[in-house]
């Protein structure tokens, strides 16, 4: 248990560091409010033509779905640029010889940043959801713990995928394009911009097995249309993918360190 203390302290320090940058927090919140507002305008127009239910979603559910998906996506840390920079500049040489696992150190450090972002994003999501379309219809408070678990797991999967992409810096000099591609896969196949139910059947089937859907789509869908079977299915996929990405990150890190070549001091 004591060995976990170092990760907890890293987490605590990271929280206080992030609370200092109030303007950044405000800018991100304004962006969140704005982007959901544009989505609201778009979907209002579509619902105005198509009727009250589209692919099983009412306008109220659709806006809450998009708000929650956006909330998850925005609750991420800068882990990619931080780790990539450390690897490229060679600063990582000073971190890997410390008495902790580098990957888990980054995880606890990021969790402080993510906790601050998630908390502000949850409050923002609740306020904008209520103002834009009113309370989420059919939502029961009893389902909240399950929804929160899947939201947190989604955030963790997202973290380890970014970690993995950042570690590619051990071999690639210019790796930013990888995050552009990944974030767009979450936008599309992950259902962040549009629920999977609107996809053509064949694509929906494929997307349901891919990790991207378990970052944003699955938790957001559970929040707006909860079912026990949906929760169990989501949990199984999320735990499986989380375990997979943690294992691969650790493995890639170990390989990367062997390939590391730092010049100078």
């Amino acid at each position: 248990m004591r060995s976990l203390n170092k990760y907890f302290y890293t987490f605590k320090i990271s929280i206080s560091n992030n609370l200092v940058y109030a303007w950044n927090l405000l800018a991100r919140t304004i962006f969140f409010v704005f982007i959901v507002f544009v989505m609201l305008l778009l979907w209002k127009n579509i619902y105005g033509q198509k009727g009250e239910i589209i692919a099983g979603f009412s306008l109220n559910q659709m806006i809450w779905y998009l708000t929650i998906a956006e909330m998850i996506s925005l609750s991420r840390s800068n882990i990619f640029s931080e780790v990539s920079e450390e690897v490229k500049k060679g600063n990582i040489a000073y971190t890997i010889n410390k008495p902790y696992s580098y990957v888990f150190y980054c995880f606890s450090n990021s969790m402080g940043e993510i906790a601050v972002r998630l908390l502000t994003n949850i409050i923002t999501a609740l306020v904008i959801g209520m103002i834009y379309v009113g309370p989420l219809t059919g939502f029961k408070v009893i389902h909240l713990p399950m929804v929160i678990i899947t939201v947190l797991l989604g955030i963790c999967i997202n973290f380890f995928i970014y970690m993995l992409l950042a570690l590619s810096a051990f071999w690639l000099e210019e790796n930013t394009a990888l995050t552009w591609i990944y974030s767009k896969l979450v936008f599309t196949l992950g259902g962040m911009l549009i629920p999977l139910e609107l996809f053509p059947d064949w694509l929906e089937k494929i997307s349901r097995h891919l990790p991207f859907a378990y970052v944003t789509y699955a938790p957001a869908k559970l929040a707006v249309a909860y079912s026990s079977s949906g929760f169990i299915n989501t949990l199984v996929y999320q735990l499986g993918y989380l375990g997979f990405f943690i294992a691969v990150s650790l493995l890639v890190f170990r390989r990367g360190v062997k390939a590391l070549n730092v010049n100078g001091g």
């Binding site: 930013t176 394009a177 552009w180 767009k184 599309t188």
Partner: peptide, 13 residues
């Protein structure tokens, strides 16, 4: 080239 094609792919989403 990576940045140019990366951005094209990014926008294609």
């Amino acid at each position: 080239l990576i940045q140019t094609f990366g951005m094209i792919l990014n926008n294609s989403a």
